[in-house]
Design a protein around this nucleic acid. Structure first.
Length: 750
RNA sequence: GGACGCUUAGUUCAGUGGUAGAACGUUCCAUUCACAUUGGAAAGGCCGCAGGUUCAAUCCCUGCAGCGUCCACCA
């Protein structure tokens, strides 16, 4: 027996070495598996694209969970003999990364991004991103992820940039990407536009002012944002409101705090007649709802607040003032003029930016949008023509709207992908949430006023007209200076292409043929809309197929008290520290067994400690079996097994049952049940029951040899059944058994 | 305001139309034994509440309560 089994299992001593052996074998790469004759070339493909962690620092428990679940499935499918590919990568996470670096620079050098300039800031971010990338990829290795590093991708590398620009151009040409003046969510702190999904609402107390614009103005209105009232161009009432019927359609000129306002009385069903006075001052430039009303009624839009959340006004007292100061000034003016009718405190939800905490200021700005409603006739994309001949088991459902025969929209593509069953979302109830989201979908604002990211591939002439779109600026015919759009793309635009930009798209590669659509997307439910839906959109549009056949959503990892792990609470558990202390195997077991699909996961150190005991249990099972079997070639012992005693029959039956259950659970993506079953059969059946029974059998010369064979057989079976969950200890044991030649457990058959 | 989910042992959670399950914790016993990280056993439950469907409901349906999440938004 090898020396190492004489003491307790020490994960730290073995895990790094084992990972190196795996990586150097090349078998994370499916083509290498085929080359070595371990996988059949025609074998069904099984593909997962790793959700790329942000290059904003280090791996957290959520990543560890994601890696664990995906690695279990990948190892299982590799052992099944499928052509198994798992592509790793990282995400540039534009806003998050830039904000992180800017914060550091501000702290250390007291400089803003404008002090550094675009080029210098980008240099600094690249350095940070590179370091962060290196940390993260080494941590992914520590967790034991058997992903194909030869195909590693970054959402902002050259290949992905080419894909992004190609995608942008194509959608622009189709009219699906347009530029428009919209009231968007402006973050004055981050100096950028943010999407609706990046807003968090905070409840605060606000003052609701009820006032009249002028003494001869007939309708009093209520507002919490007095300062925006100098930008009002209408007053809206409910069309059925009896009080105001006579005024609808009339126009009034008023002098309001040094500004001349032209106010039209309009009727709109959006107005709640029971709130305030039942009348609403319409500020088209600084409220999204108001902008819609203004569009319907052809009202002018007057911007009165700038990007720094300061006033723009003809009134010298107001101009350049912060919004809160302006609010006071106007309130005082109203009091002096005796126009202020009422002041009351109300609770109000204030929109703030998730990343910076800045209070959102709705502003009109020219932005780039993806139009999700626009109907278009899909071109038969090159990729789509080949779908019929694809090497995939499931028929590829065309995502075009059959009824309309020709026309569809991005929204319909997104809906149909799930509705038709081409994509299954697990747990199933998330489908409802998905459909609900799609029904309420608005144009997707894809431009961001930050510097880190894919720069919008649009060039303008001096007049600001678009002269070129795509990968390279084509020289404008005779026109003057050509300037690239200063903005960058929403980070989700590039990650939306992830399932196929990682496979060589827009080139028509063999890889796309073989590995797309991918088999499964495994990710947290919190990015169902940000990411999952947008991948469905892009894949449906560019390839006329779904990006993945199944979506498995896991929950948020929380601490023992059910709180989210966060830096500010200091309750985070670092997966790498844990792996260091108890082994990656133990961390994996603790995570997977707690992870029922879609439910949040509570984790505490004790649980992980418990699973370290489990790896040691397996270690001791091995020690016992090696102690009681003398052989130079373990594989031979493992060959044929027959049951002679009652205990033999029972244990073989238990193993057969366990194998069936684990297989079934993994196929059903009930990974936690599979892991618990492996644990149960190993500890309760093999260790507690059969090893105890074998002690007597080994003393009986008549059945001693037979019992040894059976023990050897059971050990190998147990190693295989456990390998997807706890790959390191099982591989280490397998490597240490007396084999004539030393195969890798990782590539053994299930 | 709208949607979705959860409620099962002291705790954390599985689970099923027919006698209620695990892990941890607790208590007791055993242990020179592959296991310092062991084994065996015990205690512990109106399966949130109220109706309904059913021969039979913890499970299916309806309502309610508490907790949680997401979405919208408050002029």
């Amino acid at each position: 027996m090898e020396e190492i089994f004489k003491k307790a299992y020490e994960p730290k001593e073995h895990e790094g070495v084992i990972y190196k052996i795996w990586e150097e074998s090349g078998f994370f790469n499916p083509e290498k598996m085929i080359g070595a004759g371990l996988t059949h070339e025609k074998a069904e493909a099984y593909t997962i694209m790793m959700p790329p962690p942000n290059v904003t620092g280090i791996l957290h428990m959520g990543h560890a969970l994601m890696l664990t679940l995906e690695d279990i499935l990948i190892r299982y499918h590799r052992m099944l003999g499928q052509r198994t590919l798992w592509i790793p990568g990282t995400d540039h996470a534009a806003i998050a990364t830039q904000a992180r670096v800017e914060k550091d620079i501000y702290k250390n050098e007291d400089k803003s991004r404008y002090d550094l300039g675009r080029e210098e800031l980008l240099k600094r971010i690249d350095v940070f991103a590179k370091a962060s990338h290196d940390t993260i990829t080494s941590q992914i290795r520590i967790m034991g992820a058997s992903c194909d590093w030869s195909r590693e991708a970054f959402t902002l590398d050259e290949k992905r940039n080419f894909a992004v620009n190609t995608a942008f151009k194509k959608m622009y040409d189709e009219g699906l990407i347009f530029r428009g003046l919209r009231v968007i969510n402006w973050d004055p702190k981050g100096q950028t536009t943010i999407s609706d999904d990046e807003i968090v609402y905070e409840e605060r107390e606000a003052t609701l002012y009820t006032f009249k614009y002028a003494c001869d103005f007939p309708i009093p209105v209520s507002t919490t944002r007095l300062e925006t009232k100098i930008g009002d161009t209408a007053v809206a009432v409910h069309p059925d409101d009896k009080r105001y019927q006579d005024f609808i359609g009339k126009e009034y000129k008023v002098s309001f705090c040094g500004e001349e306002l032209n106010l039209k009385i309009i009727a709109d069903r959006e107005v709640d007649p029971n709130f305030g006075t039942g009348a609403l001052g319409v500020t088209p430039a600084h409220s999204q709802i108001d902008a819609l009303m203004a569009e319907k009624n052809h009202l002018p839009m007057v911007q009165v607040i700038d990007e720094k959340a300061r006033m723009i006004s003809k009134n010298e007292l107001l101009n350049g003032k912060k919004v809160l100061e302006a609010r006071e000034i106007i309130a005082n003016w109203l009091r002096e003029q005796k126009l202020l009718i009422k002041e009351e405190k109300i609770k109000q939800n204030v929109a703030t930016a998730e990343r910076t905490g800045g209070i959102i200021e709705p502003l009109p700005k020219k932005q780039w949008f993806v139009d999700v409603e626009k109907e278009f006739v899909p071109v038969c994309h090159a990729g789509a023509t080949a779908t019929a001949s694809r090497n995939n088991t499931d028929p590829v459902v065309s995502l075009r709207d059959d009824k309309a025969l020709q026309k569809t929209s991005l929204k319909r593509i997104m809906k149909k992908s799930v509705e038709s069953g081409a994509i299954t979302i697990l747990p199933e109830h998330f489908s409802k949430i998905y459909f609900h989201w799609i029904d309420n979908l608005k144009p997707w604002c894809i431009s961001r006023q930050i510097w880190y990211g894919h720069r919008i591939p649009v060039w303008y002439d001096e007049a600001g007209e678009v002269v070129s779109v795509g990968n390279e600026p084509t020289s404008a015919k005779g026109s003057g200076v050509v300037m690239q759009d200063p903005d960058t793309l929403d980070t989700w635009f590039s990650s939306a292409l992830w399932t196929f930009s990682t496979l060589g798209w827009p080139k028509e590669t063999a890889e796309l043929e073989i590995y797309h659509p991918t088999s499964l997307l495994e990710t947290g439910y919190e990015i169902l809309f940000f990411w999952v839906a947008r991948m469905i959109l892009m894949s449906g549009y560019f390839l006329d197929e779904v990006p993945f056949k199944k979506v498995l959503l896991h929950g948020t990892v929380r601490d023992a008290k059910g709180r989210k792990m966060s830096k500010s609470l200091g309750n985070g558990i670092d997966p790498i520290e844990i792996a260091e202390k108890y082994g990656a195997d133990a961390a994996r077991m603790a995570l997977v067994t707690a992870a029922a699909p879609g439910t949040d996961i509570k984790i505490e150190e004790n649980k992980i400690k418990g699973y370290k005991h489990y790896t040691n249990k397996l270690w001791n099972i091995t020690r016992f079996i090696l102690d009681n079997t003398e052989t130079s070639d373990f594989a031979k012992l493992n060959e044929e097994v027959v049951a002679t005693t009652e205990a033999d029959r029972k244990i073989l039956e238990e193993f057969a049952k366990a194998k069936a259950k684990i297989t079934q659970s993994l196929n059903d993506l009930e990974i936690h049940l599979a892991a618990l079953e492996a644990y149960r059969v190993t500890w309760n059946e093999l260790a507690d029951f059969y090893i105890e029974a074998s002690k007597k059998q080994l003393e009986d010369p008549g059945i001693k040899t037979h019992t040894q064979k059976l023990l050897a057989h059971l050990l190998v079976q147990a190693l295989k059944l456990n390998h997807p969950f706890i790959p390191f200890v099982t591989e280490k044991i397998y490597q240490s058994l007396p084999h004539k030649n030393k195969p890798l457990l990782m590539v053994e058959t299930w």
